[in-house]
């Protein structure tokens, strides 16, 4: 299997470890994000996905490890050593937040103008030039407005350009946040659960938007998402985290077939539940390759007293399509592990 993210990646994360006091939120995590690819970071709640984002974008300083961003032309940035705003400004990494962070008292257009702050500052002669009326600030401002218009069009919010961001619906706020991140002119876009709270139609639109960002703007996208229709539908590469460790890394097809992933999503807690895990893997295996489940495996799982009956219920259906397994099994764990 070819793994395009192995060669010449946009972002290399190596041995990343993040500890909060005694809690190891991320443990020795290594992965690559390929150029012009959509990479999804998935895992149960509390797996450490947002923490990975915060390390990449400089909001947290990792305890150990290296995060290297490669620009074209061989320019390298060691993100773990840079301030958060410098990462956006110079390394060109933009992000959105799990809990939306818009400037809600400012209009949509203003939100996107703020995102172009650095280039506008320069063309305003660090304010002094524009105050004295010299230089082409007016022209630069008009260009910035054109950029805003382009992205507002792209996310379908152009008609609401002059409304305050706080007045938008939830889905529209998510799209505006993506547009705002794009206005910083990034190379790598990090999206933290962009489909959370969206209805199926909005998810579909989000897929189109992200594909267009990847293909028309040659961007790499790193995506945290629970919505499997988004993850499986558009990603080129999936990394699965559980308890801050990587448990799987591959293409969507590989991930769907990975027993460890299903186990994590079924909520197998630790090694004591080994039997349970084996049963889960066997069920998946059966679903994919039509191998019958050995009776003793199932019995072992049933006899483990820690297994609640509800868990068994999710495991019993025979022959679901692999995609359906992923979806169904993802559902009960949402929010359950926090």
């Amino acid at each position: 299997m070819i793994k395009p993210w192995e060669q010449n990646p946009e972002l290399e994360v190596q041995h990343l470890t993040m500890r909060f006091g005694g809690l190891t939120a991320i443990g020795d995590l290594s992965f690559n994000v390929g150029k012009k690819q959509i990479t999804a970071l998935i895992g149960p709640n509390g797996a450490g996905k947002t923490t990975v984002f915060n390390c990449i974008t400089g909001f947290y300083k990792p305890t150990e490890g290296m995060i290297k961003l490669n620009h074209e032309g061989g320019k390298e940035f060691l993100l773990e050593r840079m301030d958060d705003f410098r990462i956006t400004r110079f390394a060109k990494v933009a992000r959105t937040f799990q809990n939306i962070r818009l400037f809600s008292g400012m209009t949509l257009l203003e939100n996107l103008m703020v995102a172009q702050h650095n280039s506008l500052m320069k063309s305003s002669g660090w304010t002094i030039g524009a105050l004295l009326g010299t230089g082409g600030y007016k022209r630069a401002e008009n260009e910035a407005i054109e950029t805003c218009k382009y992205w507002l069009n792209k996310v379908g919010l152009i008609d609401r350009a002059d409304d305050p961001a706080g007045d938008l619906s939830y889905g529209a706020q998510r799209r505006l946040e993506i547009a705002r991140a794009m206005c910083t002119g990034p190379r790598l876009l990090c999206l933290d659960e962009p489909a959370a709270g969206l209805n199926p139609r909005e998810s579909e639109e989000l897929n189109k938007l992200l594909l267009s960002v990847r293909d028309d703007h040659n961007m790499a996208i790193l995506l945290i998402e629970h919505d499997m229709s988004v993850v499986m539908g558009i990603s080129d590469h999936i990394i699965v985290l559980d308890y801050g460790r990587k448990i799987a890394d591959g293409t969507p097809v590989q991930i769907k077939a990975d027993p460890a992933v299903i186990r994590a999503y079924l909520g197998v807690e630790d090694e004591d539940d080994d039997a349970d895990g084996k049963a889960a893997a066997a069920v998946i295996d059966e679903a994919i390759s039509h191998k019958p489940v050995p009776m003793e495996t199932l019995l072992a799982a049933i006899e483990t007293p820690t297994v609640p009956p509800k868990k068994m219920a999710t495991k019993t259906p025979v022959k679901p399509a692999p995609k359906a397994v992923a979806k169904k099994t993802a559902a009960p764990k949402k929010g359950g592990r926090k």
């Binding site: 974008t57 909001f59 937040f97 703020v114 991140a181």
Partner: peptide, 16 residues
């Protein structure tokens, strides 16, 4: 004004 609205968002947009 953006700073008044949300400082963390400002930093994520590359504002010092």
């Amino acid at each position: 004004e953006a700073l008044r609205e949300d400082e963390i968002a400002c930093r994520s947009l590359g504002i010092n």
